[in-house]
């Protein structure tokens, strides 16, 4: 069907993702020319590894935003999940399966609490998640005294290193824990949103909640699922982070909420629900990662990198908004 393919291409050309991709490619080309290091495998793997935490959380948040809600308690959820899982592993011993089960189960439980507050008490999700961020985080530090855990089980500290292969003479690469979990998260979220009935219902509910109710959707269950999914993602992300940092640090995750929000909304997800794609989130994340990484490689002092990130966010959202307004104006005229 070349016609429908053409139509699909035309739709893509008009989409937010297309422009984002164009910007990223330009940026990559520029950085590649300016610094030979940028386009190396080494750098690519480093980038994926260091952005895995934000990326996994972004996928959870994407699902929540599509459903028409918002959650910013995920950093607190991650802190709790990380502490519970690794404290358990230290005390009773565990393996990969059990730590992930515990962390994701903890996240699921906290997500369910959010969903209950939102649904049963009819409180807007923004209020609930601002509140539970403080509750989860406050209680965690109160109970643990904010102490770091530096001694992690050996198998956890070592991590994993799959599909090892050599590149050139000096270095070898493989899939580490961060990249594995990030990849699996992308795959599962994409399958959920695009290949299951539930995923399509999440989109539908975000697009028109009243209609969803009228058509007999189980909106309670859908919302439950969405916030629990966010919690599970927070649980997974927390272990990825702990493994990378080689420690459990209950106080360092809270405060990173807006990095995640930035990646998702730069990727085109709308805060009013129903809009957003896994590809867009990937590109939003990539833009932020490439930018920060590129600045370092260009020798820009790390003190100044945030300035450029701010500029890029501001310019890209302004240009997007401006071009949308132009298009709308033209359509009115036509």
């Amino acid at each position: 069907m070349p016609d429908s393919l053409k139509a699909a291409l035309a739709r893509f050309r008009r989409s937010h993702e297309f422009w984002l991709l164009a910007v990223i490619l330009l940026l990559c080309a520029g950085l590649g020319v300016a610094n030979a290091q940028f386009l190396t495998m080494q750098n690519l793997f480093d980038l994926l590894t260091s952005y895995a935490f934000v990326g996994i959380l972004a996928l959870g948040l994407l699902v929540v935003l599509i459903a028409g809600g918002i959650d910013i308690s995920f950093t607190a959820t991650a802190s709790v999940a990380q502490y519970v899982a690794l404290a358990f592993a230290n005390a009773y011993g565990a393996n990969w399966f059990t730590v992930f089960a515990i962390a994701m189960g903890t996240g699921l439980a906290l997500g369910a609490i959010n969903a209950q507050f939102i649904q049963k008490l009819r409180i807007p999700s923004i209020i609930v998640s601002v509140a539970t961020l403080n509750i989860f985080y406050g209680l965690l530090i109160f109970v643990t005294g904010g102490k770091y855990i530096y001694s992690l089980p050996d198998w956890f500290a070592t991590g994993i290193f799959w599909f090892e292969f050599d590149w050139g003479k000096t270095s070898s690469y493989g899939v580490n824990l961060q990249i594995l979990v990030l990849g699996v998260s992308f795959l599962i979220t994409w399958l959920l949103l695009n290949r299951t009935n539930i995923g399509r219902q999440v989109y539908a509910m975000g697009g028109n909640p009243d209609a969803a109710q009228r058509l007999g959707f189980h909106t309670f269950r859908l919302n439950m699922l969405v916030y629990c999914y966010m919690g599970v993602m927070a649980g997974a992300a927390s272990l990825v982070q702990a493994q990378l940092a080689q420690s459990v640090a209950p106080t360092v995750l809270v405060g990173k909420e807006l990095d995640v929000v930035a990646a998702v909304v730069l990727g085109g997800a709308s805060l009013s629900g129903g809009v957003g794609t896994v590809l867009g989130t990937f590109l939003g994340l990539t833009l932020l990662a490439v930018l920060q990484n590129g600045l370092i490689l260009l020798g820009v002092s790390s003190y100044w990198s945030q300035l450029f990130v701010g500029l890029v966010i501001l310019i890209s959202v302004s240009v997007t908004a401006w071009s949308q307004r132009e298009r709308r104006a033209r359509r009115v005229r036509a």
Binding site: L258, V265, Y303, W304, G310, L311, I313, L314, V317, S318
Partner: peptide, 20 residues
Amino acid sequence: VSPILATLGTMTLCKGVAIG
């Protein structure tokens, strides 16, 4: 531009200037 995005941008920008 939606306020959350715009102010997220200026937030990062201002902090960037301050740190720089």
